[in-house]
Design a protein around this nucleic acid. Structure first.
Lengths: 206, 206
DNA sequence: TCACCAATCTTTCCACTGTCAAGATAAAAC
DNA sequence: GTTTTATCTTGACAGTGGAAAGATTGGTGA
């Protein structure tokens, strides 16, 4: 009937397989976790053969690297968007960024694990490093605004950075690992305030 | 010469394969990481066939569960031993336990990742739950000694627990993930003091 | 002492994985 | 319109975890 497209299913060439594979990988990751992630599963989700991804990504780790990079981009957005909604007191600013950090982790637990807990994304990838540094800069700037000087310049400032990042990163990890059951009742009432109260404990004293 | 042991290679029955497999698994884990861990690699290290582990451990995850359980036991020891060396000020006690927590993570990075970052150990295993709870109890008791009351009893106490655990867990994770390069110069000088300074920031105010 | 049993280990097999090589198709370039 | 090139499929390979079946042996009871 139609000599031009005898295959109503899928054209031989996908069109934007790279994008489709990233979407598929995110779904695969969210469902199966980092340890159950499968390249062939991604290919199946995208509706292509198991070897199709090879042209767009050198190997499975390269796909995961690209996915982690997107994750860092989103993490930074999640931090800054809440921060900007809060413009005022520098301490509340940084707390808001921290709440955004934790919110991202809770919304994308497997992606967060991929970004911080997996060896598979290449830590030498320049794109990944760049976006990860962006999120780090958001944190450092927040501490700077509280302290009024560059926290990277002296030991006390470095410890402030470490403390703020650690507490936020720790909550995020423990929450998505399911190890903060004792906080559950509080979190159900008013998650943002509870998180803010905890994060605030680590900030430089005023 | 010795008629009792005519097979210098290996007897058909290992003797204590369960123990040998746990040792092999720890080595395999430390070398290859959680994601490179292989059951066949463990079997090879223990000098048995690839199917031998099946009798002692239901499957690969069961072996990892047992290994993680040992990890929690050691983690708790690492915390309490430093704590007991410090008996005196309750705050310094808890800080010491935290330093022990981080020290364990730095000494056993892959094991730590297995315990807190992997889905493979069964979180329903009663032995694992028990030993994990032991480490948690050490933390809660430390907070209790500072506050003078049961921190599990009210919201503020729960937040104190969450803050103390989070900051320690966060440092540990970020350090072994190689994301605390900016702290490296400080850590090389006097790691314990630096860690103590950071951990202290999260403790209940006196 | 010896036959038997159950525990322990090996061998063999299967489905699944990531990667590679070769071939098929179609879009783009000329 | 032909050729080039990018994209995708098919088929193969070694390595993986697990199941099934056979081999070995230490221990138990007669």
């Amino acid at each position: 009937m139609n000599p031009k497209t005898p295959t109503p299913k899928q054209p031989y060439h996908h069109g934007d397989l790279r994008r489709a594979l990233l979407d598929a990988a995110e779904a695969e990751l969210a469902e199966k976790g980092v340890e159950g992630f499968t390249l062939r599963g991604c290919a199946k989700r995208a509706g292509v053969s198991h070897a199709a991804p090879a042209y767009h990504f050198k190997d499975a780790n390269a796909l995961l690297t690209a996915l982690a990079t997107i994750g860092f981009e989103r993490l930074n957005r999640s931090m800054t968007s809440r921060q900007h909604a809060e413009r005022g007191d520098p301490r509340q600013d940084l707390v808001a960024a921290g709440v955004g950090y934790v919110a991202f982790a809770r919304d994308n637990p497997m992606l967060f694990k991929l970004m911080f807990g997996s060896e598979r994304p290449s830590s030498e990838d320049s794109d990944l490093v760049q976006h990860a540094s962006g999120a780090f800069a958001t944190l450092v700037n927040g501490v700077r605004d509280i302290r009024g000087d560059d926290p990277m310049a002296d030991a006390d400032g470095l410890k402030d950075i470490a403390a703020a990042w650690s507490i936020v990163h720790g909550i995020a990890n423990l929450l998505i690992a399911g190890r903060m059951g004792f906080l559950q009742p509080l979190l159900e009432r008013d998650p943002e305030t509870v998180l803010a109260d905890i994060i605030e404990r680590s900030l430089p004293q005023q």
